[in-house]
Design a protein around this nucleic acid. Structure first.
Length: 465
RNA sequence: GGCGGCAUAGCCAAGUGGUAAGGCAGGGGUCUGCAAAACCCUUACGCCCCGGUUCAAAUCCGGGUGCCGCCUCCA
């Protein structure tokens, strides 16, 4: 089966067909870097990283670009409040973004372009729009003239008239039409600025993505993604700018993720109810956070709180425990190379995982599949005779799924120090002599030191807690 | 007002015409020297409400109710 994805542009699930066989050009709108990212900012970063990983798993070569908005009103405001240089502040939070997202298992983009480093392309883009009659200058500002672009509203599915009734013009703006939006903003006193034909100023918000997409990926790309709230006006405006200039479709597939909510309310920096990833990873293994995000379908709203995170943690531990128990069993299993019915079952699970992911990246169902695999695997572990080959296939399967989802399902093997190993040996000896008082003493002692012992039919196994 | 989304067990979350996945939490049991892990059973005569279509609806249609988001450079 081929990958199907929900396309905001057509409001339906479509089979994915790349522009070029075997290659995918993908652009994800990145953050405005004026603070640490919160869990809501993390969702698109995580889910589109998952999309990228899955495309790669399916054999596509993915060109993945995600920008940083490093010049913006909010950055300027935050810098002013801190008494900090705006560029330094942006730079600082770009570093924090990389730290936090790396912890969440997010791979770096192939390109992370920044507004401040793309100024020539942006100015050139605006000039070209003005030349073609899509942009006009007014007192140093430049606006995009939406009336000149008849299909405006197609992405968000709104009629121009309806949009116009809700739009407004702020004081000081000199738009010809309420729907027009800024391509270039003349600097106010003391603000950072760049020289341009119309004034010293800075770009409007939407133009950067149009310019960067063109620069790094070309006139038409396969996938353009971002948070649901970006569909309008941000992406709508990007489409208008890019298609007005290039006279080509900007992106074939538009993907938008749903919100994370706190107590069923939107989380945002402006509401002040946000949870920072940087704080969260101090209390939780970051893979728990990623696992939590992927347990829901990416387009659905997802409520967040600590109990839900605890619940996700318990589920992930269940998978980890299974992986560890399989590995213990591998060590205790003589080399029985024969396959058995379980091998066929594993192949079925692998197929189902792919079917789930092909269905609009349905990680919720894919993870359900992992849990069912774990239950059948645990049942298999209770059998007196197991095939080493099958056990090893279980581990590689878990690793494969973990790579696709970006969540490690198989914990790294750890080493014991000699003293602990000796104690475990002593306990095994004591148990064989039915000296349970001594064996329980050693078990309690090790528990204090964070080593949990479990006696099985195949011998004693241990794990750290 | 315009556009869109959501409503399924104590909590989370799948399922979009064929008789309610999965996880967490809870209860009971099996295994164990005792544990742990695991497995088994159990927890929605019902999927917001009211009508309708159908042999069959959580799923389709009509009408309500509630919540959320976008239309304000918030992912």
């Amino acid at each position: 089966m081929a990958i199907h994805m929900y396309n905001t542009l057509t409001r339906s699930k479509e089979e994915f067909r790349p522009l070029e066989e075997g290659r995918v050009k993908m652009y994800v709108c990145g953050p405005t870097v004026y603070n640490y990212i919160h869990i809501g900012n993390a969702r698109p970063v995580v889910v589109f990283d998952m999309v990228r990983r899955y495309l790669q798993y399916k054999g596509y070569e993915v060109e993945y670009v995600s920008n940083f908005t490093d010049v913006d009103d909010k950055i300027i405001k935050a810098a002013k409040e801190n008494g900090e240089d705006a560029f330094k502040l942006a730079e600082r939070f770009i570093e924090k973004f990389h730290e936090d997202t790396k912890a969440l298992g997010v791979k770096e983009a192939d390109e992370h372009p920044r507004v401040t480093e793309s100024m020539p392309e942006i100015i050139e883009f605006i000039q070209a729009l003005v030349d073609k009659g899509y942009g006009y200058e007014a007192d140093g500002d430049v606006y995009f003239h939406t009336k000149a672009f008849p299909s405006y509203g197609q992405l968000s599915g709104q009629s121009i008239d309806d949009l116009r009734s809700g739009a407004r013009i702020d004081v000081g703006e000199q738009k010809r039409d309420p729907l027009d939006f800024a391509l270039w903003k003349k600097a106010k006193d003391g603000e950072v600025n760049w020289e341009a034909p119309w004034s010293s100023g800075r770009p409007g918000w939407h133009i950067e993505c149009s310019a960067m997409v063109k620069k790094y990926l070309g006139d038409t790309i396969d996938i353009h993604a971002g948070g649901q709230d970006l569909a309008f006006p941000h992406h709508e405006n990007e489409v208008a700018q890019s298609e007005a200039l290039n006279e080509k479709k900007m992106a074939n597939y538009w993907l938008h993720n749903g919100y994370i909510q706190i107590d069923n309310e939107k989380m945002s920096k402006s509401l002040g109810n946000f949870v920072l990833v940087n704080d969260l990873i101090k209390a939780y293994d970051p893979s728990v956070i990623r696992f939590f995000i992927l347990q829901a379908h990416y387009r659905h709203p997802l409520n967040f709180n600590n109990e839900l995170l605890e619940s996700a943690k318990s589920g992930l531990v269940r998978i980890h425990t299974f992986a560890e128990n399989v590995q213990h069993r591998i060590k205790e299993t003589a080399d029985l190379g024969e396959s058995d019915v379980m091998e066929n079952r594993i192949e079925q699970f692998k197929k189902r995982f792919i079917d789930d992911m092909d269905d609009d990246f349905h990680t919720a169902n894919a993870i359900t599949n992992v849990f069912e695999f774990v239950r059948e695997g645990n049942r298999y572990l209770q059998e007196p005779n197991t095939s080493k080959r099958v056990l090893e296939l279980m581990v590689t399967t878990l690793k494969e799924w973990g790579t696709v989802l970006g969540v490690s399902f198989v914990p790294e093997a750890e080493l014991l120090d000699d003293e602990i190993e000796t104690l475990i040996e002593q306990r095994i000896q004591a148990r064989s002599e039915r000296n349970f008082q001594e064996s329980d003493r050693i078990r309690d002692d090790l528990k204090e030191r964070g080593i949990l012992l479990e006696d099985t039919a195949q011998g004693t196994r241990w794990k750290r807690v």
